[in-house]
Design a protein around this nucleic acid. Structure first.
Lengths: 331, 331
DNA sequence: CTGAAAGCGCTAACAG
DNA sequence: CTGTTAGCGCTTTCAG
């Protein structure tokens, strides 16, 4: 494996084109005036020599790395790959690189990784905080150096936030279930300290209480870890009294359906299920799920850290309910 | 938001400590001799001033970015987040950064992203190729500049490969199913041009044919896209004649189980299911699944691109069959 | 063991 | 419109 030790530099192009390196730099950066004639010539030579520029040198001089950092709380939660994909897609269009880190649901790891990204001179940070309160310090630390936007989840930081209308999503889900004749609701998948989760539970109470005053007693307040199963005790306790369950992720819904089938209950005939995220899993498992407009969220977040004006509803991107078999007998 | 325009540089530390910048550089890089006395003093000052170094300047001078690139074919396939997490974990321990890109299952995108990473001067590339043949060109292009290792999937490149023993995994699965009294097998989830998939299908034929000569006729040769469902026609055709199905991903298994239940078949009583990847999904859905030692794979891959000698079984890391309800009535 | 000096490849004043 | 020049912050010879 021969390794090109000697890349083509701006000097080579300049020499070959018979102009100064400054001119080459100008032409290549597209900026400033450039003699139409010279311009074409330089571009041609650069192309022909296979000049690719050196982003490190460029960064050192221009003080920007053209890399954004993205920190997610836990990449194995299938929601985040979808978010990452959207961010990457947008960055790709802007020719920016993506420095990714996973906090492993641990604030100390998150802190570490943010510092490391800061040292690498990312231009801005997109972060989905691990904890509503404990992540505050590191977000503010980052914010003192570069633009920061909180994506999807938020901590109590002054950094702008971009996310979806979780309350609206729950409202839609409840309306859909009510239209199917459901009237006794439960909610599974609350996580303390996760802002989206808090918002969803609040909305669940708000939108179900008029139909079902007891719904508030059917919220599982216990956190369901990744790959964990809904506690049997809790399930048995509420099951006789429920005909619809909303979960905060497709993963939980799959697990839950499994438990219900084990108990001889039918989905959706006996109990309807609606989940969040609409990941590939929802399609594969035929789950009714709430689709979040991640591409829009990513785009708005990136626009924000780039200092662009953003006119869209930053805090309340509307979600879409994708109806499938788990909530609708006819489908 | 005040932005620190002026970071602490090596000059500041040098001035404060009353030594030259060269000395500071030596002390901080740990290398070379350094007067014990001076050493302590410099370290103290650096700490106190909150010196963090400038990785961009360091990279320009030292010609290494301390960043590795990782290219995955499709991040929404739940296997890859697990792989990414393992890579990230290992990189974190080495203080290296992770530049991530998603090929969106498209060779042209993959090509683009690799070039972009190369321009960013990644020290090495870890790639799980999108296509066995078509990815070859870009892998070799990268290999001509930096160390490259193929992870999990491989194309026909000279770049070293690190992956698991897919044949052994299938062998274990078949043995487990046979021990449960199963004797008529089918395989779902073949993807043309994906090296792991080819290996699994070959092994499926090899290890089932002595028990079940017809197994080869029950391989679904059609690719199942993400979130797609197993074709009903094919299922109906083989179903009367099958008591065990091996799938190449947890996602497919979930979807498949759904289809089976719809047809009034019980899992595992009527048909046992074993899948690949053992992602969170397998735990949530109670699927027997093949666990790949991703941490080991990631570690070996990173060691390889770092030029370290790797003594482990690079091409055949052993997998583990995690038995759950989908294949075993007793569990 | 330490300092001085020379750049890494590029951009951005500043002149012409 | 184009060239000259001065660094960005750091590592690394080369002298002392």
């Amino acid at each position: 494996m021969d390794r090109d030790r000697s890349r083509v530099t701006i000097h080579d192009v300049a020499r070959e084109a018979g102009v100064s390196i400054a001119t080459v730099s100008r032409v290549l950066s597209g900026s400033a005036g450039a003699g139409e004639h010279v311009r074409a010539r330089v571009l041609g030579i650069a192309q022909q020599l296979g000049y690719r520029g050196d982003s490190v040198a460029r960064s050192l001089r221009s003080r920007k790395s053209n890399m954004l950092g993205l920190l997610v709380p836990n990449i194995t939660n299938p929601f985040f790959p979808a978010l990452i994909q959207s961010v990457e897609l947008e960055l790709q269009a802007r020719q920016d690189g993506l420095l990714l880190a996973d906090a492993q649901s641990t604030v100390s790891v998150e802190t570490d990784r943010v510092r490391s990204m800061l040292d690498r001179r990312i231009d801005a940070l997109l972060i989905s905080p691990t904890d509503e309160e404990l992540s505050l310090a590191i977000i503010d630390e980052a914010l003192s150096q570069i633009p920061v936007v909180q994506l999807d989840r938020r901590a109590g930081s002054a950094a702008p936030y971009v996310g979806v209308d979780n309350a609206g999503a729950i409202k839609d889900a409840v309306a859909h279930l009510a239209a199917q004749g459901r009237s006794r609701f439960a909610f599974v998948g609350y996580s303390r300290g996760v802002s989206t989760s808090e918002a969803r539970v609040d909305a669940f109470v708000k939108y179900t209480e008029s139909i079902d005053p007891d719904s508030v007693t059917r919220i599982l307040r216990e956190e369901i870890g990744d790959g964990e199963v809904v506690p049997a005790g809790w399930l048995d306790q509420i099951l006789g009294d429920v005909d619809a369950i909303i979960t905060s992720s497709d993963l939980i819904a799959v697990s839950l359906r499994d438990s219900l089938l084990d108990r001889g209950l039918r989905v959706p005939e006996d109990i309807a299920l609606v989940s969040f995220d609409n990941t590939l899993l929802a399609a594969a498992a035929n789950l009714t799920s709430i689709q979040q407009p991640l591409v829009d969220v990513a785009r708005a977040g990136i626009a924000l850290v780039s200092g662009l004006e953003v006119e869209v509803p930053i805090e309340g991107f509307p979600t879409t309910l994708v109806v499938r078999k788990s909530s609708s007998v006819g489908v």
